[in-house]
Write a protein that binds this DNA or RNA. Structure first.
Lengths: 118, 118
DNA sequence: TTGACGTATTCCCATATGGGTATACGATTG
DNA sequence: CAATCGTATACCCATATGGGAATACGTCAA
């Protein structure tokens, strides 16, 4: 088997930096392809291809307006990523320090109880 | 150019489901390779290869103990992912609804001021 | 030392990437 | 209708993936 397709899920789609750039740009509002081409400094075909990937994982929606195609962010598709990574937040966030102390105490208490059973 | 290496950054490393599984397993504590092999139901060489990728992006640390190698989670490497994705949280979290209202009001107020300048 | 164990590395292969370039397609304008 | 604009698609290519299988390597036991 080869690497999973970029369109397999949001994780794979967003692994490409250009696609994150596109989402960041769309966070400020709807934009036509050419505007993204200007912002990214990438050729138009590549931008269209990246947008296709983002569409396939549901991270963007499209709307036709004359000859332009307006792309819009759909952040919902990124929730699974957030849900997964937030469980690791304790690794760097000080907000969890206090909670960790409490958990350590509980652990210690449990161990003491076990010792009493012996 | 081809797709970026899986070892290019945490985003790419974590795009592979097996590697997320490994990190999830290590979240509960240090583990030797064989234990991960059992948990993932994957052949040992593939697990070692996934671990190498995770090591290269700094998501895990290793420690030798006899003939075993104990792998330990280093969630710090995942912070960039969290930092990026949390900006999209408003897309699904109700917690931001109220904030959105406030921002809308501010925007409206600014616009009114602009109108007065005319 | 020899053998067994735990892990890492090497080689093979089908697969699809992302950029470059050319071109096709639909909508609008003249 | 013809020309042009805005986008999408089709090709070509170098690259590296992830799994399978075989094997190399370091450590411990007998």
């Amino acid at each position: 088997m080869a690497r999973a397709a970029t369109t397999a899920d949001a994780f794979n789609a967003v692994a490409e930096p250009r696609r994150r750039q596109i989402l960041d740009a769309l966070a400020e509002g709807e934009r036509p392809v050419n505007e993204l081409v200007g912002l990214l400094g990438l050729a138009q075909p590549q931008v269209s291809k990246h947008l296709r990937v983002l569409r396939e994982v549901g991270a963007v929606d499209v709307r036709d307006e004359g000859r332009k195609r307006l792309y819009r962010l759909n952040g919902h598709a990124l929730k699974p990523i957030h849900d997964w990574v937030k469980n690791y937040e304790r690794s760097w966030s000080e907000r969890f320090d206090e909670l960790d102390v409490v958990l350590e105490d509980l652990k210690q208490k449990e161990q003491d109880d076990g010792d009493n059973d012996q």
